[in-house]
Design a protein around this nucleic acid. Structure first.
Length: 443
RNA sequence: GUGGCCGUAGCUCAAUUGGUUAGAGCACCGGAUUGUGAUUCCGGGGGUUGCGGGUUCAAUUCCCGUCGGUCACCCCA
């Protein structure tokens, strides 16, 4: 028995690869509409790239080892450090704002569970050098439009959005000591899943008074800027952030995705480096974990690369997204590639002519297949070869009636039966009238 | 790292309280038939029942371990 695939890794057979290609192609197609440019870095990085910065719970789950040169290395678990290094190295020369994206395969050594493997492909979209909220709106807009491009709509997913600055202002307004904020964040993050009394207990342990504690426990109920204004609008320190969020919302409506937006103060995002608006995309039925997450991290480039530039970005993995698309029937039409043309020779058609014909058609960008045995090309009955063609999903069969003349037959259900006769004897790679074939293929 | 559930053909599953040579459909391969074809029929390959040990006259079945899968916790790209 040959070794199996490692736990948490995937083999992509053609059917699965088609799904993967569909996802990655769609990512690229939509992101390019927003004029983002693709980049990439090494899949293997110095371990130090991930351990140097603080707040790395990731380190314990790194796929790391010593290479043959004794270097401590790690398979990249996230793209941001690489991105930060690349931007920092040329920060002066890059036209701002930088709008780049990447589709790296990322690795993580942890026990797999639903929606989480040890490897996945993740779209990373980032903007560097713009602090205005319009950049935040642009970013979320891309994420939402991508999901829409997969055929998902308002009934399938929505965006939960918060703002670290707003949240901090609210906590300050409630006179919660800054030292307790991380604990409050942790509670907010689990507010939905954790029993209320457990949350209350943790908040009390963090030093919150009764009023602050009850207010925080009720944060989930604030689902709009207006709701917050009623309660906190009187405070100028809070109002400034509410105004910004309102502007953000306004931009998103103008971008056509405002309906997907939902203010949600319980969206915290685990990573400590977020500094502004943060968001996560969820399926509407709450069946899967977050499809996508991101936000503004204005201090990270400075911490990582020594360059003081505002930045924001998000990541979207192929695993959860793929599960959601499959569950919602959005992968039905994703098909494995099949040949355009299947060539079936007659007794009088030489093997060489079959090969020549295939070559001409292939020069015309058509995918061509035929039985790969000189003997069978002639011994196998045309009916059987026709069956081969159908099994392969060929769109048309080129069935020779004599040495060089062939009948073009459309297979499949749609236009099955349509046909034309062509004389392949006149075909050369440079001069070939393939119009009858191309028209039957709908080209 | 902790815990629950589950491992039979490529896939979906079956196999009497533990009992003969572990079966079926689909898929795959070969053939017959049908000159417009997704039909039908015949045949074939494919399994150390995840692996190892134990109990037993006898283990796919019961027990232990291990590996793998899955779900949850932890944590979160």
């Amino acid at each position: 028995m040959p070794p199996k695939v490692l736990p948490g890794f995937r083999d992509f057979y053609p059917a699965e690869f088609s799904v993967r290609a569909h996802i990655l192609d769609t990512w690229r197609r939509i992101v390019r509409r927003y004029a983002f440019m693709e980049y990439d870095g090494p899949p293997l990085e110095p371990l130090e790239l991930y351990t140097q910065k603080s707040g790395d719970e990731i380190v314990g789950q790194l796929y790391s080892f010593d290479d043959k040169g004794g270097r401590a290395v790690a398979m990249r678990p996230e793209m941001t450090p690489t991105f930060a290094r690349m931007v920092a190295a040329r920060a002066q020369a890059l036209r701002k704002p930088v709008r780049w994206f990447s589709v790296p395969q990322l690795f993580r050594y942890e026990r797999q569970q639903k929606g989480r493997l040890r490897e996945h492909f993740q779209l990373n979209v980032d903007i560097v050098g713009e602090a205005d909220v319009l950049a935040d709106a642009e970013l979320l807009s891309v994420a939402i439009q991508i999901c829409c491009a997969f055929g998902l709509d308002r009934t399938d997913f929505y965006a939960r959005v918060s703002d670290r600055r707003l949240l901090n202002a609210l906590l300050a307004n409630l006179e919660i000591d800054a030292d307790a904020w991380p604990a409050v964040y942790a509670v907010l993050d689990k507010l939905e899943r954790q029993p209320r009394d457990v949350s209350a207990e943790k908040l009390a342990a963090a030093g919150l008074g009764d009023v602050a504690r009850e207010t925080v426990l009720g944060f989930g109920a604030f689902d709009s800027v207006d709701a917050l204004r009623v309660r906190f609008g009187g405070s100028p320190d809070v109002a400034v952030h509410l105004d910004r969020f309102a502007e953000y919302t306004s931009h998103l409506h103008a971008l056509g995705v405002g309906e997907y937006l939902r203010l949600d103060l319980t969206i915290v995002r685990g990573l400590a480096y977020y500094t502004g608006i943060v968001f996560e995309l969820f399926d509407a039925q709450g069946e899967f974990r977050a499809i996508c997450g991101g936000g503004r991290y204005d201090n990270l480039l400075n911490a990582l690369g020594g360059v003081d530039l505002p930045a924001l970005g998000f990541g979207m993995g192929d695993v959860v997204l793929g599960e959601l698309l499959k569950a919602r029937g959005k992968l039905q039409e994703v098909s494995v590639p099949s040949p355009d043309v299947w060539i079936i020779p007659s007794e009088d058609t030489s093997v060489a002519h079959v090969l020549h014909t295939a070559t001409v058609l292939r020069h015309a960008e058509l995918s061509v297949e035929y039985v790969l045995s000189s003997d069978k090309l002639h011994s196998r009955k045309s009916g059987a070869q026709l069956k081969d063609a159908q099994k392969a999903g060929a769109r048309i069969a080129l069935v020779f009636r004599d040495g060089v003349r062939a009948e073009v037959m459309v297979l499949g259900s749609e236009h099955a039966g349509e046909r034309a006769v062509v004389n392949t004897g006149e075909w050369t790679a440079s001069v070939a009238d393939l119009s009858s074939i191309l028209s039957l293929l709908g080209r």
